[in-house]
Design a protein around this nucleic acid. Structure first.
Length: 572
DNA sequence: GCCGTTTTCGGCCCGACTGTTTTCAGTCG
């Protein structure tokens, strides 16, 4: 079983947790965390990099020692240091740190004083009120622990950003009604356009007498006020979403926005650069000798630190800072660059609206083309089309095109990739299409090897043009398939096959890292909505967000091109 | 454990809030 990047991240994170519980040198702990973060952000497989003789100590936060440890992990699946640590402190302790308000010091004291190793033991001790007797703990901490354990994961699950958006927009509208408000903006992972968000961070600046904090905690949808101060408050809404508000002076709003947008790794890296340039950078601004010298806008922050402005989607400390310093940032794709949707269903299969309606809606969006790509016969739950029915649909497309101006209707189909890797429709009909999207809809649980071979085999069919929702994941519902994505992408590059970036908020498939990996491996991608109703054509922006997080530019996306150019992308 | 146009040793981002304190450690972001 090959060791993947995820495994290395797990080992390093665990080492960091256990070292921290043991009260080791905090900078050593951080070194492991930063290394884990670096690996987590890589698009290539570390195992393969090592195989190719790459020197890992060139990676940020990874020196000679950790490069050696990575080699060991790749070879053996773990590392002796982790085993040694587990001899000293139980490995399960790191799980306790996930409870909010419980950090390494408290975990350590729980273990030392009461021999508590896991949530179950912790719950029992809390119920017997033994926690409050410990030094540093009290009744409130004890109650907090009990509540969190009982509430469990469900409520703490990260929310899909599209869902969080629906909850937060009315809240923002409400907050903006505070008359003395000067600025208000959402920051955090929401602004970085992550596919899911843990909480929502809002930043505000007000004129004298601004009552924004009271307005915030007084919102009718607030279920619980977690904390409240003059400059910072946190609430839980009835939906379970946590929202934080920070109030800062307008003069430092840019610095604050930068800081609260994160990611933390990005912010820390930027602050280090500030220190080197003899500034002190915090959420109130950039200071020299206790005097604020910049920070009104984010652009000013980046400018003073000698780099280009970095779009929020890139702020993950995955190389964007170096790129910004050397003028090598990508010119990220925008929603307006998209000229058409290449994945649209109709009521001929499981769509709700007719072909006419879908085409009309696409034209209204200003698209130059839209592809009708209904399911093939094997997807019976959707009423997939067989060759004859598809043939009839193609005729209907011709007839609709005759009476439709201003938009080209492309002939496509979402062809199921069968378990053995063959396509669900015969070549005879596929060659009549402008292009195909081929996707997996069944048998998600094959082994990594078999699943990869299955898709590779499909790619050998010369009528395959786009691989649809490659991982098959549904966020929170179905994990991604086991696949050697790197292998697939390399094969796709050789065969002029493109990958779909499916914009549906449940899918967002490819994920951001795979987007970037695709670019690096030389494939092109198509951002599509997979719309089943006209309204879903508007989901395109979520796919574009994902593409932006993957560093993609307009030229990496085939449906930013005019039809003439797009057409040539389907020649194999 | 990493890192270096002030350093191969001695630094390592920085501030707010809570709960526990009696002046602050721990936790969080």
């Amino acid at each position: 079983m090959p060791v993947n990047n995820r495994d290395i991240v797990r080992v390093f994170s665990k080492i960091a947790d256990l070292l921290e519980i043991k009260d080791a040198n905090p900078f050593r702990v951080r070194a492991y965390r930063e290394a884990a973060h670096t690996i987590n952000g890589l698009s290539e497989s570390v195992a393969r990099l090592i195989e190719e003789g790459e020197d890992l100590s060139g990676l940020p936060g990874i020196g000679k020692d950790l490069a050696g440890k990575i080699k060991t992990i790749v070879k053996t699946g773990s590392h002796p240091l982790l085993k040694d640590l587990k001899q000293e402190v139980p490995g399960e302790l790191s799980d306790l740190m996930k409870i909010k308000g419980i950090g390494p010091r408290k975990v350590s004291s729980l273990y030392e004083e009461l021999e508590i190793k896991n949530r179950r033991q912790l719950e029992k001790a809390a119920e017997k009120h033994r926690i409050r007797e410990l030094e540093g703990f009290g009744p409130k901490t004890e109650r907090n622990i009990l509540e969190q354990i009982k509430r469990r994961e469900k409520e703490h699950e990260r929310l899909k950003r599209a869902d969080a958006e629906k909850i937060i927009e009315p809240f923002i509208r409400y907050l903006r009604k505070e008359g003395k408000l000067e600025s208000l903006q959402i920051a955090g992972s929401f602004r970085r356009k992550k596919e899911t968000v843990g909480d929502v961070d809002i930043l505000a600046a007000g004129h004298r007498g601004c009552q924004i904090m009271d307005r915030f905690t007084g919102y009718e949808d607030v279920k619980e006020v977690l904390s409240s101060g003059d400059t910072r408050s946190s609430v839980i809404l009835k939906s379970g979403l946590q929202v934080d508000l920070r109030v800062v002076p307008q003069a430092g709003f840019g610095a604050a926005l930068h800081y609260f947008t994160g990611s933390q790794a990005h912010t820390v890296a930027i602050r280090k650069i500030a220190v080197k340039k003899n500034y002190k950078l915090n959420e109130y601004g950039g200071y020299r000798k206790n005097k604020r010298v910049f920070g009104r806008t984010e652009r000013e922050v980046y400018d003073k630190l000698g780099m280009n402005y970095i779009e929020p989607e890139l702020r993950e400390n995955r190389g964007e800072i170096d790129a910004a310093r050397t003028d090598n940032l990508p010119d990220l794709v925008k929603v307006d660059d998209i000229r058409g949707d290449l994945h649209v269903h109709t009521d001929a299969t499981d769509g709700r609206h007719s072909m006419e309606d879908m085409v009309k809606a696409a034209r209204k969006k200003g698209y130059k083309y839209v592809a009708i790509s209904d399911h093939s016969r094997n997807v019976t739950v959707a009423g997939g089309l067989g060759p004859k029915e598809l043939e009839e649909q193609l005729d209907r497309i011709d007839r609709l095109q005759e009476r439709t101006d201003g938009i080209r209707i492309l002939k496509s189909a979402e062809v199921d990739i069968l378990e053995d890797g063959t396509l669900d429709l015969p070549d005879g009909i596929l060659k009549k299409l402008d292009f195909t999207i081929c996707s997996v809809h069944y048998h998600f649980d094959l082994s990594r090897k078999k699943q990869t071979e299955r898709v590779l085999k499909a790619m050998d069919n010369r009528y395959m043009n786009i691989l649809g929702h490659a991982s098959g994941r549904l966020i929170h519902k179905r994990p991604p398939m086991e696949l050697d994505m790197e292998k697939l992408m390399k094969a796709a590059a050789d065969r002029r096959i493109h990958f779909e970036i499916n914009s549906h908020p449940d899918r967002l498939d490819l994920n951001d890292r795979h987007c970037r990996m695709g670019k690096e491996l030389g494939i092109k991608m198509a951002v599509t909505t997979d719309a089943h109703i006209t309204g879903s054509l508007d989901l395109m922006r979520f796919g574009v967000d994902q593409a932006r997080r993957g560093w993609l530019e307009a030229e990496d996306i085939i449906n930013t091109r005019p039809w003439k150019n797009l057409k040539s992308q389907f020649e194999r």
